[in-house]
Amino acid sequence: MVQEEEAEKLEERLRKLGVDEPMVEDVKEDEADDDDDADTEGDKETIANDGSKQSRSEQKSHKAIMKLGLKPVIGASRINIERNKNDMFPRGADIRLVSGHPEVYEPCDDSFALVDALLADRGNLLNHKARFCMEIGCGSGYVITSLAIILGKENSGVHYFTSDINPDATRVTQKTLFAHGVHAEIINTNIASGLQKRLVGMMDVIVVNPPYVPTSEEEVNCKGITVSWAGGHNGRTVIDRILPVVDELLSDRGWLYMVTLKANNPSQICLVMRKKGYASRIVVQRSTEEESLLVIKFWREGLDDVNDGNITSSSLGFGSWFGRK
């Protein structure tokens, strides 16, 4: 009952924020300026440290997240609000609160795209009544914290696990979660090693922002922040290790949300998953100057009813699906 009220409140807030818009977005950088509701106080500083601007949907999801109670302390490079223009180290003030680490990937366009996808699919997620959720490769903790806030805290009976191979990332994630009053069990491990046997078939939602950047295979085996992005040949080496693990961990009704790059050959990833029995659809599609990102949702075929009646890869045939917007 309490949960339902909370869910209704969430719905109401998000309705006001206008998040109930088309699932598939294709936001170009040059469209980023025309957001008519962009200028709340939270958006005064939208210039990221890398000089790029937030896209419209990023701003939208950030606002939504902040309204849900996320304090503006993580993702300092993008969410930072009260930044002193004279500050030589603009991230400092925020990082003190939640801890950053030079070897930990800070939330960036790909992280935002994944959270946007979760927000876009929020209605389905709330109805999904997940018992266990997991993020593989939590980095700063931005995504798992956002997911925990989107789904509501533990009073709704959802429990979260998260893993990262980088010990520094697990520490930062712990602080990020704590700062926002949510909890996830954090395991310092490679993908889900050590959890795979006992957690088989238990995850209702898995989110992954994998290291997808095409690199040499040597870089894949580096330590520190490199593991957050080095994806090997076609950016697929780590993705191809993750997919069978996800297949094991997902429950019969489990969903996977994964970030991919066009260069990863996402249609081929969908084919791999299809052979394992999964249907798929694009939840968020976003092109920036640097990269073209897709967030794809996978679920076991035959359970299409939970996906708002969207046409799926299984019903359309692969080629035609992938070509549609």
Binding site: P167, Q174, I187, N188, T189, G194
Partner: peptide
């Protein structure tokens, strides 16, 4: 032995 530090088990091999 897999150490647990600050509440986080380390399963790295």
């Amino acid at each position: 032995r897999f150490p647990i530090n600050k509440g986080i088990p380390n399963m790295l091999l």
